[in-house]
């Protein structure tokens, strides 16, 4: 599941395109196309959830080239070609390395509090479903108020904190 942010990355785009093909245009009456589509969807799901490996990229590339010959009809060929075009993007390799540059893949996205902007209001902590944010609310007469901190290992990139912060004090890490 992605974020509500209005961005999309190349792997997600490829995934959605294949899902749409699988749901509507793909007839399933030849052997290679439905299997290639399903395996490609599985691989892209792994890639966009941070579990992609380099070998997945090899496999996807192979699908995009070989399915052109193997598919029985132009629809399958088209799907293969579109996949091939998408794969040209360097974003795929970066996803395998664990980075979704556009923040579209929650699993590969992390946020951090910008310390100098944090007003320690606590809204982010309340919003976080993962208990990933540490910190205490601002107390005026105390001198040791510290900015809130997002624990990267617990953050799953859902960006609820971003939406909740009134001070624009949370930025994307990857």
């Amino acid at each position: 599941m992605s974020t509500a942010t209005e961005v999309i990355c190349a792997p997600q785009q490829a995934l959605e395109a294949l899902r749409a093909f699988a749901a509507d245009g793909m007839c399933g009456r030849c052997i290679p196309c439905p299997i290639a589509t399903r395996q490609s969807i599985a691989m892209l799901e792994r890639i966009t959830s941070g579990e992609g490996e380099a070998v997945d990229l090899d496999r996807l590339t192979r699908v995009s080239t070989e399915l052109i010959d193997a598919a029985r009809c132009p629809k399958g060929e088209e799907a293969a070609k579109k996949l091939g075009e998408a794969l040209a993007s360097p974003e795929f390799a970066r996803h395998v390395e664990g980075i979704c540059g556009s923040g579209a893949c929650a699993a590969l996205t992390r946020y951090r509090v910008i310390p100098e902007r944090c007003t320690m209001c606590g809204a982010c902590q309340e919003a976080c479903p993962r208990d990933a944010i540490e910190g205490d609310p601002f107390i005026a007469w105390r001198g040791d108020n510290k900015p809130y901190v997002i624990r990267l290992e617990k953050c799953d990139g859902c960006a609820k904190c971003v939406a909740a912060c009134p001070a624009d004090a949370i930025e994307r890490v990857t």
């Binding site: 599941m1 992605s2 509500a4 959605e16 749409a20």
Partner: peptide, 13 residues
């Protein structure tokens, strides 16, 4: 709608 723009716009939610 499942299209890309809608997907990005929060159709999932």
């Amino acid at each position: 709608c499942r299209g890309t723009a809608c997907h990005v716009g929060g159709a999932g939610g």
